[in-house]
Amino acid sequence: MSEKQVITFKSVDKFFYLHHQKTLKEFVQAMFMRQKTLEHVKALEDVSFSIAPGESVGIIGRNGAGKSTLLKLIAGVSQPSKGQVVVEGRVSPLIELGAGFHPELTGRENVFLNGVIMGLHEDYIKEKFDEIVAFSEIHDYIDTPVKYYSSGMYMRLAFSVAVHVDPQVLLIDEIFSVGDAGFQSKCMKKMNDFKKKGVTIIFISHSTPQVQAFCDRVLYLQDGKLTFDGPTEEGIALYLKQL
């Protein structure tokens, strides 16, 4: 491994403390009753892998296997409890559509808001604005508050901002249910453009056909442990067998 890795996980553990009590009152009660106040939950256990620039890696596994936790660690919003996470380059999460959007603001205002949240500069968004709107197919409604948008329009706009970020590492979490078939294929095309440009892509999906179509390699997580790391076909076959 002489080549520089974009993402490196070295025996990473992630614990959560589940608070059983949300308020002080419940907490005090539990103390007196000698109930458990904190529970140790292991979301990831001894996970090691590395991803080279330009790879497209799918992360598969059942609900609660630790996929989203893994993504949070890569995005840098969460810290490992043990081990080491090293990420080189600008990471752009294609964030859950609508996070950061405000329903009362117009499409235009939300494009800027969402863009700066993703780390873009205002001038850059101004420059790309027409392109973003064109991609989203929102056109005339761009100055309407997004609360009047249909859910499809809402997602299309958010997605358009996201794909104009010019990322080095792209994190995609289950969002390809966006819009109609036409828009979906447009998104897939955009993703393939990114891939050709050498963007590293981390892709979480329950849709195995999408992972198969898109990724060269998969990481298969089972109860927080990395049980498979290798070619997509093999990993998906293993996953489907164990379902």
Binding site: L113, L120, E122
Partner: peptide, 18 residues
Amino acid sequence: WDLVKHLTLREIRARYKQ
């Protein structure tokens, strides 16, 4: 700075629109 500006604008705009 751009992020601070737009998050602040969000708060201000959202209120007067409501």
